[in-house]
């Protein structure tokens, strides 16, 4: 970032800074790309404003230490945590808080080794890759397994904490996962709680928002719903959202993928030439064939464990 010159340094125009940093574009994009998430977007703006002000203060010598920027993102799967983390990396980059602005997404397996002496190099490897950007640790609580006292996760935690404390200029860590489990994780590892400055909670989507997400997904792939199919999708969402293993936006995408599969089968089986309209239209039957409507859970491949957020 450019240092201010003497002549203009008696006042800082925050709006102008906001525009100059290109943050407006980032937020526009965020609004465009992500349905709903009003509280999350609000928090993001607050954080951006805080950082802008911090930066302005630093110019007048009002704050000397670099701010703690590590964060936690809590919420159910499919609520947009990774997408927002990507934007967050960009926001931090534009404000000059990280040098490169890339996002490295990992889970326990990327950090913790299989045998003694394996964990430290693995964790360091990831930390090195993330430096200059943002490290996003999904389901961070899996790092901590108190039931196994020899668990190598503890080693990863110690290295993480050290780097989070000593190299705040070099990288920002975002810890993510289900809200209740994150809370237990922070209680058991107060070192993390004290190093995380911003907590953002991601609410589940309403049925209306989920429908809107479906619409965007289809738009993006050049499909439309017939009027009957629209009605079917609304009903599908109402039922699916109350079932276990519901993953918000991701479940909607999966449901639509399966609908496309059925549509393709239907067109192929019809044996008649197809028009552009045929090719782009999802019919009600493509959705109604789902097991959801007969009391089953709509998931393929069959569910093994809880999928990652």
């Amino acid at each position: 970032m450019d240092a201010p010159t003497k002549t203009t340094s008696d006042a800082v125009d925050l709006q102008a800074e906001f525009t100059a940093s290109g943050l407006a574009d980032v937020f526009d994009e965020l609004d465009r790309d992500l349905v709903g998430l009003v509280p999350v977007k609000l928090r993001l703006r607050e954080i951006a404003a805080l950082l802008l002000v911090d930066r302005a203060r630093a110019r007048f010598g009002l704050s000397a230490i670099s701010p703690t920027l590590h964060m936690s993102f809590t919420g159910n799967p499919g609520t947009g945590k990774t997408t927002v983390a990507l934007r967050m990396a960009e926001i931090l980059h534009r404000l000059g808080y990280v040098r490169k602005g890339h996002l490295v997404t990992v889970t326990r397996d990327d950090l913790v080794g299989q045998y003694i002496g394996h964990t430290a190099p693995k964790t360091k490897e990831i930390l090195k890759k993330a430096m200059g950007g943002v490290l996003f640790i999904d389901e961070a609580y899996y790092l901590y397994r108190p039931e196994n006292e020899r668990d190598y996760g503890q080693e990863a935690i110690e290295i993480l904490l050290q780097v989070m404390e000593n190299q705040r200029d070099d990288l920002v860590v975002i810890l993510a996962g289900y809200g209740d489990r994150m809370e237990r994780f922070f209680t058991a590892n107060p070192g993390f709680r004290s190093r995380v400055a911003h907590h953002i909670d991601f609410p589940d989507y309403s049925e209306r928002e989920l429908y809107a997400i479906g619409g965007r997904i289809l738009d993006g792939m050049n499909y439309t719903l017939s009027p009957e199919a629209e009605e079917a999708l609304t009903r599908y969402i109402a039922i699916r959202a109350k079932q276990p293993h519901f993953a918000n936006g991701r479940s909607i995408r999966n449901a639509l993928d399966r609908a496309r599969l059925r549509q393709a089968n239907r067109l192929f089986a019809s044996g008649r030439p197809v028009t552009v309209e045929d090719l782009t239209t999802i019919a009600a039957e493509d959705i109604l064939a789902s097991r959801v409507f007969s009391g089953g859970i709509d998931s393929y491949p069959p569910i093994r464990t809880e999928s990652a957020a």
């Binding site: 890759k129 430096m131 200059g132 070099d170």
Partner: peptide, 14 residues
Amino acid sequence: PMFDVKDAAGVLFE
């Protein structure tokens, strides 16, 4: 050799 590091801080760390 550090193949996928994006920022010099990663190398300086080592």
